[in-house]
Design a binder for these strands. Sequence first.
DNA 1: GTGGTCTAGACCACT
DNA 2: GTGGTCTAGACCACC
Lengths: 129, 129, 129, 129
Amino acid sequence: MQIQISPGGSQTIYRQIVDQIRRAVAADKVAIGDSVPSVRQLAKDLVVNPNTVAKAYAELVRDGVLESQLGRGYFVARRKNIYTKAERLRRLDDVLDSVVSEALALDFASEEVVQRLVERMEALSPRER
Amino acid sequence: MQIQISPGGSQTIYRQIVDQIRRAVAADKVAIGDSVPSVRQLAKDLVVNPNTVAKAYAELVRDGVLESQLGRGYFVARRKNIYTKAERLRRLDDVLDSVVSEALALDFASEEVVQRLVERMEALSPRER
Amino acid sequence: MQIQISPGGSQTIYRQIVDQIRRAVAADKVAIGDSVPSVRQLAKDLVVNPNTVAKAYAELVRDGVLESQLGRGYFVARRKNIYTKAERLRRLDDVLDSVVSEALALDFASEEVVQRLVERMEALSPRER
Amino acid sequence: MQIQISPGGSQTIYRQIVDQIRRAVAADKVAIGDSVPSVRQLAKDLVVNPNTVAKAYAELVRDGVLESQLGRGYFVARRKNIYTKAERLRRLDDVLDSVVSEALALDFASEEVVQRLVERMEALSPRER
DNA sequence: GTGGTCTAGACCACT
DNA sequence: GTGGTCTAGACCACC
C-alpha cells in the first residue's frame, strides 16, 4: 500500500490521501479486510500531521470504504452503496459541472473531453464491474 | 445578459459568475464586442459585494474572455487561446481526475459517467463548434 | 438558536453540539435557510475550541442537515434523504442494539423500554411528519 | 456457551463479549451457577488478547452478572439489581437519547423506530419475565 | 468578518 | 502499539 502526495499540488493533502486509497481499493490493489497503514505510520511516512491522515481516513469510513477497529487500525470494508440514487447523481453532477466549466474555459470540444475522460477512467479499472 | 446566483449552492459566488459568463460567451448568447453589466450594476442586481464581481471579471480578463476598457466597462473579447496545448490538457486532467475519484467513490460505471457528462455538455452548447 | 453543553457528561462535546442542532432542526425551531451561529462565535460562547465546533458542523453538512457558504457561514439545508433504506436501517439498528444491551444489563422489561422511548420521542416532535 | 465476535463491526471487542454473555444469561441459555469459559480459553478461541476477555468479565462481575471464584473461574451469578431505580433510568435514558437523535437524523417516524425496537428486543427474550 | 486546511501536542480508551 | 477527542494557534480563500 504505497501512498504519495505532492505537497505543492492544487489539491489538499487529505484529499490526495482519500483519492489514492479510493483508487487502490477500486482497482483491487488492496483486498477486502486488508489493513491500511496506521494513522501515525502514514503520517510519519508522508511527513504530515497525524490529524491530516485521520481526517482522510474518517472520510473514507463515512463513505463506507474503510472500517475502523479501535486499537487495531483501519481495514478495507466490503463495498456497499450507502447513498440514495438521487444523492449519488447529485454528487456526480457537482464534479461533472466543474468539468463542463473548465472545458468551456479552455475551449475544448465535447468530444475531446469525453475521450480524455474515457482514457483516464479505463486506465484504473482493471477489476470486473 | 442575465446572471443568476444561488447562494445555497456549494460553489462560491464569484465562481458562479465566472462560469455563467463563460457559458453565455461559449453559447454565443453574447457577441464579440458586447458589453457585460458594470461591476457596480451587477453587484447591486445580485446583492453581493462589488469586490466579488470585480474578482470574477478579473479572472475572465486573465483568461481572455473579457477585455476591460478603462472608464467604459468590460466587453466580450475575440476568442483566443492563451494557454499551450500542454497546459490546457493539464488543467483539464485535473478536473477529470476529480470526476474519476468521485465516480469510484459512488460506484458508478464508466458508461454512466460518460453518458451523464455528454448530457450536461450538450445541454449548453447550442452553437456550432 | 441556543446551544448548551455539559462538559462533564458522558457524551463528547462535538456529539452534543450535533445532537442539539439536529433536534432544533427536526423540531422546526429553526427554519430552512436560517443561519446557525458561526464556528468562532459558538466556540466562544461554549468556551470550546473552534475545531470542535467545526467538526460538529462538518458532520451535519455530511448528513445534509446544514450547508456551508464559504465566507458567509452555515445555514439550515432543505431536508433530504441521502442514505439508502438499507443504510438508514443499519444505522438505526446500531443504536437500537445498544439500547437492547443496556436494557438487558439493567434488567428492564421490554415494555418499560418501549414506553420510555415513546415518551422521549414525542417530547420533541412538534412538527408534522 | 458459544461466543462469536465480528472484528469488522463498529463495536469494540470487549463490548461484544460483554453483550453476548449478558444476552445469554438474560435468555436463560446458561443457568445460575454455570461456569463461563476461562479467560485464557476464551481468548484463545476468539484469538484476542486475554486482557480483552478479562476486561469484559470484570465488567460483568461489577454489574453482578458473573461471580469470580478465585482459582476456579467465573460463574453466572444469581440476578440482583445493584443500581437504584433513578440510576437505572438515567442509564437507560442515555442510550434512548442516542436513538432519538439518530432517528431524527435519518428521518424515521416514531412508529418505525418503536416497531423496530420491539422486534429486536423480542428476538432475544425467549424466557418469561 | 466567514469557513477550510494544517500543524503540534495532549489525554483517553482499547488491544 | 492503535484510534478518538480536544486544545491552541497558524495561514489561506472568500465575502
